[in-house]
Design a protein around this nucleic acid. Structure first.
Lengths: 189, 189
DNA sequence: ACCACGAGTAGACACCGTCTACAAAAGTTG
DNA sequence: CAACTTTTGTAGACGGTGTCTACTCGTGGT
């Protein structure tokens, strides 16, 4: 494992263990046992390193959505929605980093590739349900990618607001599962 | 206007003009024409100042949702949803600050008060539609606040993902209005 | 006259990201 | 083998940031 990869894994560990505030360039260098300037030999700056970390987050998210249990298109889409929320709740720091424009570089090709792959997979599940013969009439007129974007945004907002904490005491009980059920009922009910 | 209020308005101006990255304690002090340490005479730290700014953001958001045109409960709820998205798109920096836990103090009483007020108002609109006699059968069994939280999360995710930019090229056309229409159709269709 | 207090200043400290000059190690090539 | 190049790492510096402390300067009250 080259030094570049070692820095990425060290940063990932630091991120999940100590949160997004701890992922500082000097902190990563210290945790990796190198001097504070060493990371800049392998990355043009902090944004590039953290972009690589965030890209791994999207990879992990996609793996979750790939390993869904078999079932009807409807069951698989519902499982994918749960997966998204589960991922965000299980990896709050990574989830935050993945959408923090000030920490990562949105133009990074690897990041665009991996995030697009997640969305494409999700849109595919939506399309599968739309064209399922045994489940007809589900949003027949709307573009699958537009529908997927809308549904994904709902899940994303749920995860974001839950992690934000503002709605915790106000509305949900002890987990966003209840609200997710309402959301899924609205789209799939 | 006391010095505390002047610092808040200066910070707000700096935020909307130059983005969330520009809202630094020293930058605010310079923009206000005082020395770099002066703000700490009126705020315990940066988080308290920015929390006051974010609280104003929630106040402005609530004003938007209060000044909705008259109409049926259904029309008013739809207008409120558009208002939320409009606010986020019109004030992207403020919207980002309002949900950045690392910049504000989520425990700040004023912040909790104002954000709760927005949610309460939104939940009231949801409740009005639920009990509207001319529009029966809309999610009759679910708690109004839970339903409001789910719907709000959908709007929030839409705004967040749009401002993030990842879905722009991928799915929406040139504005999130299309996706919002899909979302509203799912909940209210 | 005194003094307490609100408000501001200047300097220091510990971080941070980034840049530069330098050194060592590793691989490549004559 | 020797010389050279590339990779990798180091140490220091610079400007920026949030926060703390000591000090100053009015202003109003007793």
């Amino acid at each position: 494992m080259g030094p570049r990869q070692r820095l990425i894994t060290t940063a990932t560990r630091l991120l999940t263990e100590q949160g997004v505030e701890a992922v500082t360039l000097r902190g990563i260098a210290k945790a990796a046992g190198v001097s504070h300037g060493a990371p800049l030999r392998h990355f043009t700056g902090r944004a590039e390193l953290l972009s690589a970390v965030a890209a791994l987050g999207f990879v992990e998210l996609r793996e979750r959505e790939t390993l869904l249990p078999a079932g009807t298109p409807r069951q698989r889409l519902i499982a994918a929605c749960h997966s998204y929320l589960d991922f965000a709740l299980a990896n709050p720091a990574m989830f935050e980093l993945m959408f923090r424009r000030d920490l990562i570089d949105p133009e990074e090709p690897e990041l665009i590739t991996q995030s697009s792959a997640v969305f494409d997979l999700f849109a595919e599940l939506v399309g599968d349900l739309q064209t399922d013969l045994k489940d007809p009439g589900w949003h027949p007129g709307t573009d699958a990618r537009l529908l997927a974007a809308s549904l994904w945004a709902s899940l994303h907002g749920l995860a974001q607001l839950w992690l934000w904490g503002g709605l915790a005491g106000a509305s949900f009980a002890s987990s966003p599962e209840m609200a997710l059920a309402v959301t899924l009922d609205a789209y799939l009910g």
